[in-house]
Design a protein around this nucleic acid. Structure first.
Lengths: 142, 142
DNA sequence: ATAAAATAGTTGACAAAATCAACTATTTTA
DNA sequence: TAAAATAGTTGATTTTGTCAACTATTTTAT
């Protein structure tokens, strides 16, 4: 891999870090930390998920995650249900309230994206999104 | 802006957040936090820069930044020089050691990019980097 | 069958990162 | 020249994240 290619990629990364950082700030106005948002997101997206699943996908410290989950339970956002077949495992589920809360976060994030990326021409959107898909496709096949 | 476009963009953002998060972890093995790396970077990239410049570009808390700078001074990575024309302003400069340290970080980051993005075909690099440039161009003209 | 190792999750102690507000010292504005 | 603004510092505190020891199960190897 050439020096120049590395520099080009780093240049994009610096630029896009700022974009993402800006969007992440949405969550700073919510009642949740970014880690918490990701955890809610994980629970929301998978019908059955365990703390350990989240650990591996998000790469958090397990003590940290345990506390986050405990706080969610306290706030009635999730329920934990012990697996019938493996007593160590706890299945996590959003409660009604949890789903409501997630929806709020999700809508907030969507509206932030709308703001941050809004105002382009239709042609630019097409090009932008096509480029995004291209990047993802190339990197994902690695 | 259409719902679907928002979703496409969010999809890319989720994906690319992970890429950036992975690269940021390089710094976790260094002696510096991500905020500190950014600050060193800012000082390195600008021949004359003040704490306030960094505040506006990086958007940190000024107390936080002040402490980071103090620790850099203690470690002999930077020098502060009071402006002759405005006694409130401190100009920041990397010392020899600071430049060395920055170079190490910079090389480490480049090698991480090399690892994370390495192994693609030349055609894929061209497409990848072209897409990155396209995205930046579109977003920057906003 | 059972002791040892592995796995899932919890807890306490702590460290690092970040925020807030009050403060000093200058400079600018009115 | 007094008041407001700006640059930076400091103390107190909160939030976020890490580490290691712990309990409770389950799996593996003998």
């Amino acid at each position: 891999m050439k020096q120049e290619q590395i520099e080009d990629i780093r240049n994009f990364n610096r630029f896009y870090s700022k974009v993402i950082g800006l969007l992440d700030k949405t969550y700073l106005n919510s009642a949740y930390s970014i880690a918490e948002v990701r955890v809610i997101c994980e629970i929301s997206c998978h019908s059955t998920v365990t703390a350990n699943d989240i650990l591996t996908t998000l790469g958090l410290d397990k003590g940290y995650l345990s506390r986050i989950l405990k706080s969610f339970e306290k706030k009635k956002l999730i329920t934990k249900e012990r697996s019938a077949t493996d007593g160590r495992v706890m299945y996590l589920k959003l409660t009604q309230l949890g789903r409501l809360e997630f929806e709020k976060l999700d809508k907030g994030a969507a509206s932030q994206v709308n703001q941050a990326f809004g105002g382009l021409s239709e042609a630019d959107y097409n090009t932008l999104i096509e480029s995004m898909k291209t990047i993802k496709t190339i990197l994902i096949k690695k």
